[in-house]
Amino acid sequence: MCGAPLIPAVGLGSQAFGLLFPADGVPQALPQAGDLADCIRRTPSVHRNLALGPGVGDAGQHWDHHRVRGTDELINVDDPAWPELQELFAASAVPVRVLPVDRGESHRSLLQMQVTARSALGAVALNSGGLVLDDGWVRVFGGGSGEDDGSLPSLAQVNAFPSDFDPAWHPAKGLVVGHDVLGGVFALNGHDPEAAGRPGVPGQMTYFAPDTLEWEAMDMGHSMWMSWMLSGRLEKFYEGLRWPGWREEAASLPFSQGISVIPFPWSQEAQADLAATSRRAVPVREVLGVAADFAQQMGPVDPGFLGAV
């Protein structure tokens, strides 16, 4: 199946943060990679997917949305997700690198999101500085890996969380959870995707595609997205967006940089012959900024917030 069970996050997860998160019980929410169907098939410039909406919550659990949970309560849980995620990393069909975590940033991310370590989102924020997949092609944000140029920013930093916990704050458009080197953005929908100009339903993963300059629904929650990436589906997903030698180019980049493609990935020239394009390493913020500018000029809607990097 492609749709992951979704429930409101614990505490003020859906009220203050404005998001629905994957079921807060990862043993039920994280399928094994081998059980996944090809949920997303990508042809050049087009995503094709199975339109599955969210299922029921984790074992029928319901949360008190008027109670804020402290860091200790979010961390010290039964059945934490991290051991199962580590098993998925070990069996992954793509190279996975788990970065060391900045504890201060990881706790700040967890507290503002109000998700526990039982969820994949909370486990990655608590136990890793982020994940580097497919030799650097995809960067999944977690607790942050430090302050130097070679580090990966935290979920709190990428989403511009308040410096101090604020139960009234939430990201207006949704939560950015990953980038790829071409400026593709993976984000988790907030409580009102339509108002934010995003496709899909609350709590569903979406992707801002660098070859279409549009947000595309992925029809899966965060936990399923993690399993899907580790199952080897990225190769099909990025069909038409990779060229001979892409792996070496991605692997050579610091996390502060992405790849600028000229002519641009959304141009007819690039889509006709991507290998013939000119490519160079530039700051990720530049790749995102150029895509956002052109999307505003060419697209039907402003793509909105793509991450603070």
Score class of each variant (00 low, 15 high):
residue 183 G to L: 01
residue 146 G to T: 02
residue 220 M to R: 13
residue 126 L to E: 07
residue 241 L to K: 09
residue 47 H to Y: 13
residue 196 A to H: 02
residue 43 T to S: 10
residue 211 D to P: 04
residue 300 P to K: 10
residue 195 A to H: 15
residue 4 A to E: 10
residue 36 L to A: 04
residue 155 L to T: 00
residue 36 L to I: 10
residue 62 H to T: 15
residue 250 A to Y: 07
residue 73 E to I: 13
residue 22 P to M: 05
residue 25 G to C: 12
residue 70 G to E: 08
residue 32 Q to W: 13
residue 291 A to Q: 09
residue 210 P to L: 05
residue 173 K to L: 09
residue 226 M to H: 05
residue 81 A to W: 00
residue 190 G to P: 05
residue 34 G to W: 10
residue 76 N to Q: 15
residue 40 I to K: 05
residue 130 G to Q: 02
residue 286 E to P: 02
residue 65 H to M: 12
residue 155 L to Y: 03
residue 304 G to Q: 00
residue 223 S to Q: 05
residue 155 L to H: 03
residue 137 W to I: 08
residue 144 G to V: 05
residue 161 F to E: 01
residue 276 A to V: 12
residue 203 G to Q: 08
residue 239 E to W: 14
residue 99 L to V: 01
residue 27 P to K: 10
residue 25 G to M: 14
residue 98 V to I: 13
residue 73 E to L: 15
residue 91 A to K: 12
residue 247 R to T: 09
residue 201 V to F: 10
residue 228 W to D: 06
residue 224 M to I: 09
residue 99 L to W: 05
residue 154 S to C: 04
residue 19 L to F: 09
residue 86 Q to I: 13
residue 114 Q to C: 08
residue 169 W to E: 04
residue 23 A to T: 13
residue 177 V to W: 01
residue 140 V to M: 09
residue 132 V to R: 05
residue 279 R to N: 07
residue 31 P to N: 06
residue 92 S to T: 04
residue 248 E to G: 14
residue 159 N to W: 02
residue 184 G to I: 12
residue 113 M to H: 07
residue 256 S to Y: 02
residue 293 D to H: 13
residue 175 L to E: 00
residue 60 G to M: 13
residue 225 W to A: 01
residue 182 L to T: 03
residue 173 K to G: 11
residue 288 L to P: 01
residue 43 T to H: 09
residue 248 E to D: 10
residue 13 G to H: 02
residue 232 G to F: 03
residue 246 W to R: 03
residue 68 V to E: 10
residue 166 D to H: 03
residue 229 M to G: 04
residue 144 G to M: 02
residue 70 G to H: 02
residue 156 A to G: 06
residue 171 P to Y: 10
residue 23 A to H: 15
residue 253 L to C: 09
residue 148 D to R: 02
residue 254 P to A: 07
residue 309 V to K: 06
residue 197 G to D: 06
residue 204 Q to K: 07
residue 71 T to W: 11
residue 224 M to G: 13
residue 14 S to A: 15
residue 253 L to T: 10
residue 289 G to R: 01
residue 134 D to K: 08
residue 167 P to Q: 00
residue 185 V to W: 00
residue 114 Q to E: 14
residue 245 G to P: 04
residue 235 E to Y: 12
residue 304 G to S: 00
